[in-house]
């Protein structure tokens, strides 16, 4: 049988490592202010938050439900959603964090990155 001291040590190690990793990941800035909005893992919007001059609202509606996103210069959040857990709404503003806003029930992810998820843009 395993000694209790061994168990305590292993759990303590896991805990400390996880705390260190959390701090490292969460305090690390996102390195950019382009909000990439993904639905089912596919890029839906790529919003350059620093280039925004006014408030913009995006409504993401699928057969799973609705999320209303609000982007302002420098930040973005989920204003309202009809998901049961409301975790995405409770997250509040995403301004400079590498951690994404997630709405698991609606499979929506909002992530800040340094650049848009495309390599180049064409338009005319």
């Amino acid at each position: 049988m395993v000694k209790t001291r061994t168990l305590v040590t292993i759990i303590l190690c896991i805990l400390l490592l996880a705390i260190a990793a959390s701090l490292f990941l969460w305090l690390r800035p996102a390195g950019g202010r382009v909000a990439n909005v993904y639905l089912d893992g596919e890029l839906l919007y790529s919003i350059d938050l620093d280039a925004l001059t006014e408030k913009k609202t995006y409504t993401v509606e699928t057969d799973r439900g609705v999320n209303v996103l609000v982007a302002e210069p420098g930040r973005i959040r989920v204003e309202s959603a009809d998901c049961p857990d409301q975790v995405c709404v409770d997250f509040g503003w995403l301004t400079d964090s590498a951690a994404p806003i997630v709405c698991l029930p609606h499979r929506l992810v909002i992530q800040l990155t340094g650049e848009t998820d495309v390599d180049a843009e064409v338009g005319g």
């Binding site: 790529s46 919003i47 998820d117 495309v118 390599d119 180049a120 843009e121 064409v122 338009g123 005319g124």
Partner: peptide
């Protein structure tokens, strides 16, 4: 592959 975004003629995004 390279990802090239085609601008939305009616909006800001792709």
């Amino acid at each position: 592959p390279w990802r090239v975004g085609v601008r939305d003629p009616f909006g800001e995004s792709y």
